[in-house]
Design a protein around this nucleic acid. Sequence first.
DNA 1: GTTCCGCATGAATCGATAG
DNA 2: ACTATCGATTCATGCGGAA
Lengths: 292, 292
Amino acid sequence: MEIRTDLYFGDCKEELKKIPDDSVDLIFTSPPYADQRKNTYGGIPPKEYVNWFLPISEQLYRILKPTGTFVLNIKERVVNGERSTYVLELILEMKKQGWLWTEEYIWHKKNSYPGKWPNRFRDAWERLLQFNKQKKFNMYQEEVMVPMGDWAKTRLKRLSETDKKRDESKVGSGFGKNISNWLEREMAYPTNVIHLATECNNKNHSAAFPEGLPEWFIKLFTKEGDTVLDPFMGSGTTNIVAKRMYRNSIGIEIVKEYFDMVKTEMQPTELILFEPNSNYEKTEPKRRKTIR
Amino acid sequence: MEIRTDLYFGDCKEELKKIPDDSVDLIFTSPPYADQRKNTYGGIPPKEYVNWFLPISEQLYRILKPTGTFVLNIKERVVNGERSTYVLELILEMKKQGWLWTEEYIWHKKNSYPGKWPNRFRDAWERLLQFNKQKKFNMYQEEVMVPMGDWAKTRLKRLSETDKKRDESKVGSGFGKNISNWLEREMAYPTNVIHLATECNNKNHSAAFPEGLPEWFIKLFTKEGDTVLDPFMGSGTTNIVAKRMYRNSIGIEIVKEYFDMVKTEMQPTELILFEPNSNYEKTEPKRRKTIR
DNA sequence: GTTCCGCATGAATCGATAG
DNA sequence: ACTATCGATTCATGCGGAA
């Protein structure tokens, strides 16, 4: 199975139009927050945020498969000592576009950004809003199961019971098989609170989220060979993880520096670039360029 | 200093009118969630929830001191496979009443309700919405400082260093004093994510939240002698904790059974009851009844 | 007095069945 | 078609009784 990574350079509002209807299984993205990262994205003022985002979410709705899921990582910033309301308004407006607001996951950032203010504590969580087109969508819950709370204690207890009943289990592979049976029982489904530390990125570009975040949702909402889209690619975390997990992926990035960085980082398999400034712009209508 | 606990029996929408302007330092409450607790409360349909709550929040605004804080514990329920939006709408409407939406704390419930569904995981968090009347309000951050994350490790490391430098510290009280010094240095400010397990109700009445929850916010937003209000008293957790922490408190409860239960549980100091069905209704305009 | 084990119990949600 | 009720699912916690 050949895995493709398609990278588009440009404004996602326009680039998304090139992607066919009902073709993506998971959209996972973290758009530039209002007034943040001005140097790279131009910072959308909180007041204009909803109107800026709605044309994009409209395209995303068109592109997503009916069984697909859209996960939006976002958090409202503080303006004048108050939390902005653009995220609340965005949810209400997206529902008018037809989106179902299925769930809100919490990403608990264990090592949150340091700082001290007289009127608030450090912000240690972000929203992960799950939107769908239908009530029925693909979800592979077994893929993200976690050890139970008192896992070690219970497991040891049960194992000792097993030993009492079955002496033959201690012989070779029988024992191992037994353990795996118990292990299965000692796993539980997770909750809608996700614990992950923000990665201290060792490289020169900082990612908005750790790899574990897209990884969790890619496991949960797609299977191998499916297609993942990140319309605000940034440093490409979503696409890098998707590729590693044998998912096709599409990334769109408006900042040339980021786009080139990801282009360089993505290695073999099939990397497909859509660059408007390519030399072949006039001769090839789709400006396709394949790198192996 | 005499600490008072005032208990009102009746609908808080009406009872709140008896409380004077700018007289409360902290409002901490957890109203009945939409369509929840039908057996005890009426169970407000999601569609009507905002309109049901707004007259109450209007009264709360009047009653709260300008330097005070309103903490609202709430979570939207799932309707038809989708999260309801009444909490989002409520925030937007309360802002029109003049409330500032200062912050949203997350209560992470470690032991969430079990269950398995094809489209979602267990819900393990609730909102704690902080509202204020002014940008400047009372906040006592030092009161809720917590041991640092790797507290044990760091403490041991530092102590051993100390031991190397000071042998005399091992003598009697000097050692203890030393430890307390280190302990102070190992404290850090918390974040806006609060970890607490829901109490399994040990008694015959179940509380909606554990005592640790109001305790944390009472520490953070009030000092001794201040006044705390819970307009949906329920089993009286907020008031019981307030009293224990030497805060005056007001509780309002519409369910007679709960009201009587709290009345019985609250022991000495000054407990003041406002019961419309009292025998003294006609002779005493304020129907005041004091129990010592 | 401990520690350990068994058990009931939740601010839940879905799907099926019944009126 | 729309609402109301009920059973099934599931797991951290604290209680009580036992060793």
